[in-house]
């Protein structure tokens, strides 16, 4: 067969052209398949209604000096604490530069009196003890996580234990002197 003989003796340029077409086709297919996976993966991210519930308003008026309260925000507890002058003094007397996750107390509060932090241990997500008067506040007078033994100070900074960082300060704004919107 004449045609067959011709196709068998294709010049080299044509072969490299074929290779290019083959590789381009495979590459396009692979990239396309990978991109089409993205909506599937992204569907696992927080949905619009979950995101819509992401801020909460809270009044601090009911808190007396030395008292603490816990509210729920994004399914997580947020610790509110009206700190005593002694506690504020203690939080600021430390050399913050030497702490495991160095941060001055001033950066962690907007109003010196009110500490507002996410009550989730930065190690593996347990809720530290210390909000209730009956609970231990750890060796540094703040919070103590019973799961794996992380101690936090009165500014909720990590002082000892496996947690890598301070308790997170959520984004919040004072709407008035005692009204706060968290998130």
């Amino acid at each position: 067969m004449g045609d067959l003989a011709e196709t068998q003796s294709v010049p080299t340029e044509d072969e490299s052209r074929r290779d290019f077409l083959l590789h381009a086709t495979v590459a396009t297919g692979v990239v396309g398949a990978a991109v089409s996976l993205w909506p599937l993966i992204n569907s696992l991210n927080p949905a619009a209604d979950t995101l819509a519930l992401s801020s909460v308003e809270v009044s601090l008026a009911g808190l007396e000096e030395g008292q603490a309260a816990t509210i729920s925000w994004r399914g997580k507890p947020v610790f509110l604490r009206y700190r005593t002058p002694a506690e504020i003094e203690e939080a600021r007397s430390e050399r913050w530069q030497d702490l495991p996750d160095p941060q001055p107390d001033e950066e962690r509060v907007q109003d010196d009196r009110y500490l507002i932090v996410v009550g989730v241990c930065t190690h593996l997500g347990c809720i530290p003890l210390g909000q209730k008067t009956t609970e231990t506040r750890g060796d540094f007078g703040g919070y103590f996580c019973p799961c794996h033994g992380s101690h936090y100070d009165v500014s909720a900074r990590i002082r000892r234990g496996p947690a890598p960082s301070n308790l997170e300060v959520p984004e919040y704004t004072y709407l008035s002197e005692t009204n706060v919107r968290i998130g």
Partner: peptide, 13 residues
């Protein structure tokens, strides 16, 4: 972790 949870904590999703 957010991707695993489908939210901001372990929840219905």
């Amino acid at each position: 972790v957010t991707l695993l949870w489908g939210g901001f904590s372990v929840d219905n999703p």
